[in-house]
Amino acid sequence: MDLIITLMLVFGLVFFLGGSLGIIRFPDFYSRLHPAGKLDTGGLVITMTAFAVYTVQPLTMASVITSIKILLIIFFVFITSPTAIHSIVDAGVRAGLEPWEKKGGTGT
């Protein structure tokens, strides 16, 4: 069980690492929001699930309730985080920000 939890935590941290690298390395606003939204949400869901599994290890009523609370956090983050990114992208489009294009290429 501990092995699974550790694997999930490491996997989630890999997601976070990829997300932070992507935010720094990607060329423009929209492509930076892609790792910000996707990888952060994914990493958070995986690490929080690992916490939830870790919490129920001594299977008592109190630990199950704590675990359910963590699952609720996952649920709300899973809904709200992509929506926030969606609205930021939306605001960018409406404000007239052009997507990045490769110089000399055929465009998007």
């Binding site: 709300f76 809904i79 709200t80 929506t83 969606h86 609205s87 939306d90 409406r94």
Partner: peptide, 19 residues
């Protein structure tokens, strides 16, 4: 000129605000 009129954001807010 711009008033947010977005189904995704509205639905999510409608769902999240009571909680």
């Amino acid at each position: 000129v711009w008033v947010p009129h977005d189904l995704v954001i509205r639905t999510t807010c409608r769902m999240v605000i009571p909680f």
